[in-house]
Design a protein around this nucleic acid. Sequence first.
DNA 1: GTCCTCCTTGGCATCGAGTGCCAAGTTAGC
DNA 2: GCTAACTTGGCACTCGATGCCAAGGAGGAC
Lengths: 194, 194
Amino acid sequence: MSDRLWDRTRRRVQEEVVDAALTLFLEHGFEETTVDQVVAAAGISRRSFFRYFGTKEDIVFGDLAEQGPVILEALRERPDDEPIWDALAHAFGVLSTRMSPERGVAIGRLVTTSSALRAAHLEKHLRWQQVLAPEVERRVDTGGAPPGLVGEAIVATALACLDAATTAWLHQGGGDLAELQRLTGVALTAVRSG
Amino acid sequence: MSDRLWDRTRRRVQEEVVDAALTLFLEHGFEETTVDQVVAAAGISRRSFFRYFGTKEDIVFGDLAEQGPVILEALRERPDDEPIWDALAHAFGVLSTRMSPERGVAIGRLVTTSSALRAAHLEKHLRWQQVLAPEVERRVDTGGAPPGLVGEAIVATALACLDAATTAWLHQGGGDLAELQRLTGVALTAVRSG
DNA sequence: GTCCTCCTTGGCATCGAGTGCCAAGTTAGC
DNA sequence: GCTAACTTGGCACTCGATGCCAAGGAGGAC
């Protein structure tokens, strides 16, 4: 987090590109908007764009895929005797502070309308899963299961329920983050007691 | 399933392309092998290739993504009072009859090594999920949850556990399908009783 | 301020996946 | 054998993404 002119300029440019791109995406759709249109709207060269964002999907997700360690840190700070599902819910909660709810809803809607974004979204979950699984496995009783299996299954399930809840939440308008948490709880309860 | 010469030829060509492609993929990797190399090895034109397979990933997954209705049919045939997890496990079982175990293991290994294949794999699961969720929701008590939430959460969880089990199964050599089923059960039990 | 170094920028060429179009060839039904 | 239906493959093109390189701005040493 240094603050030389270069870094500040970089962040400013990045934000401008994201703003211009999201406007276009929401208006015409993600797949229908070309990178050329984005860079034209943002006033940056095509080549530089791909240095700011490795892929077109990165405009939408930013560095979210690399936030596994941040979630892990939050998970480590939860007490060891807390039920694993509560601990995970709280750990994922740290991400909600990184984005405005309005933008979260906009991104959520975009993701549901583009299979490329959906793929990137799920790949992101997979990255988180690999980071979080060991700590989850440390916390629970695996009962002699092969290493990795229980941790991965639990994290993947939590993310699956979060996704199902997000779908339902967006469907009923989105907006209230507490409601999303409630729906996630409902999904988890249904899974664990069906 | 008509049997005109055209259809038989089509199936034969398709199989030849898959065989040639899988050989190349296993030797050099999925992303590292270009479609041009595949069509050269299979003796077909590039243009025709994309009429047989809509995407490069389709070589590996075939029509698996469109088998949602087949799984659904199998699920419908399970008794209504069977626990939903057992019913789903049996329903997914019908897919194992569509491929040799050896090829299944080969594909599994490929998927773990290519993010493009992983994305297609997860997109496939999403397709299944949308087909199966309503029937699952009909079978269980949703307790007044928003429509779709519980069904999607349950199917997504089942698939997540199946994936975690597959990872562990491949890690320990693969081969025995009964062992994969056992691992899936272990994952599900861990999720539902952690 | 001057010079030198580091880093960024943008243009160019290129690759790889995927698609529309069209002319030529093959199959099916008569 | 003739015609309609369909398949094939070549060409040109779009779009995302990458390597390379020359030009230019930022920042420190003097």
